[in-house]
Design a protein around this nucleic acid. Structure first.
Lengths: 222, 222
DNA sequence: GGGCTTTTGTCACACAACTGTCATCCAACC
DNA sequence: GGTTGGATGACAGTTGTGTGACAAAAGCCC
């Protein structure tokens, strides 16, 4: 049984998260302030900590630093602000992952799983797209928690797209980055994208993650 | 220790960047031309490359392409021009991030860190017109936060208008800039504007952003 | 090495999406 | 009320993408 500590001052959000986590099979307990969170974590350490950045008193960044000081627990930041500065600062402080509110519970769950699996010290974090997890170092892809067998080329293609998640990559760019071709038949990319979709998309004809941008290329999105 | 190569022809700016980077704890070295930059990167590869677009001789775009050819180093473009075309072209050429001068050193530093840390680039800010967002890098248009599917021509047309936001563009100008036609039927523009309105205007008959200036042309406003 | 499976790249075809043209209708302006 | 410029729906030609079939190449197991 995995225990998760949720540090979040907004009662409604905290309770919603706790409920959602319990539903997913975690043991979840909450703290309304950084102080309380730190105390609980000292007394009964959880396996994961979820933390909001904007907290009364000691703020999220400081709290992360203190948690890190005496523990190696994976810390996931949940923040309303999707700001490069905050993300960087939180990761600097020692957080392991960063989610922007509103949080999709499925995604949260997948990230927690990914975090625990890799332990918190690895260099390349697993990437999560909705119910899709990609861990470059493990060479593994999972959908809804189940491993999916992809070939090497497909995996590289997926990693490349994941690395630039949310951005269009032209067939040309993909050819260069995945295959190392400076020139070549762009249709090759189509074929592999098609094969990848068969494996990672619930309905390959209506891709949700690996989408086509007609005339531009492909993009991986959440 | 992280090494950064700065390719920038203006001595004052280059030195300022080098100093600022050294201050932030990087090892920074500079190159005044693309040729010199390419040579240095071949001989002693840096961990990040910062590059200006306007360079004498080989220009920034070409330089990015050549850097990309034999290396996977994160490339950050630093340009005075905050022009959608440039941004798209730079990213196409293989750049990972784009900053507009004047550069805040803190931000630059954070982006470099983020780039290395997460192995991927941070987002290029989208252009915003009221509830309308245009993000060239994602190849995406959003209205009220929801993605709107636009075609490539529509997208280019929109980008062109956005780039000159608040100013009228004649059909002739649009034909030339979007289609590359030096001559042609101006009604073509009308049709595409109409289609675009169907997608981005809440009420296409009463356009709020993409307005007609009778006898003059079209303009995009906030 | 020989025979097997798996993966990869090429091709062709089908289909869906997009583009540009045109005709018609409407609104603004004089 | 007539004239001009703009909006729009329909249509056909074009382009771009998805996909199944197939053969070559790469692994793999005796």
């Amino acid at each position: 049984m995995t225990a998760v500590l949720v540090i979040e001052d907004d009662d409604r959000i905290r309770l919603a998260l706790l409920l959602a986590l319990e539903e997913e099979g975690y043991t979840a307990y909450g703290a309304g302030t950084a102080e309380e969170g730190l105390r609980r974590q000292r007394e009964t350490p959880a396996d994961n900590v979820l933390i909001d950045l904007m907290l009364p008193g000691i703020d999220g960044f400081e709290c992360i630093r203190q948690l890190r000081r005496d523990d190696d627990v994976p810390i996931v930041v949940v923040s309303a602000r999707d700001d490069t500065h905050d993300i960087v600062a939180a990761l600097e402080a020692g957080a392991d992952d960063y989610l922007v509110k509103p949080v999709a519970v499925k995604e949260l769950s997948a990230r927690l799983r990914a975090l625990r699996r890799r332990g918190r010290s690895t260099a390349v974090p697993a990437q999560v797209f909705g119910d899709l997890e990609i861990s470059p170092e493990a060479g593994e892809v999972r959908r809804a928690g189940r491993p999916v067998a992809v070939t090497r080329t497909e995996f590289r293609l997926l990693c490349e797209l994941a690395e630039h998640a949310g951005r269009v990559l032209s067939r040309q760019q993909l050819l260069r980055r995945v295959w190392g071709y400076d020139t070549g038949d762009e249709r090759l990319v189509d074929v592999h994208v098609g094969r990848l979709r068969q494996k990672i998309e619930p309905d390959p004809t209506k891709p949700r993650h690996l989408v086509t941008l007609r005339g531009l290329g492909y993009k991986l999105q959440r």
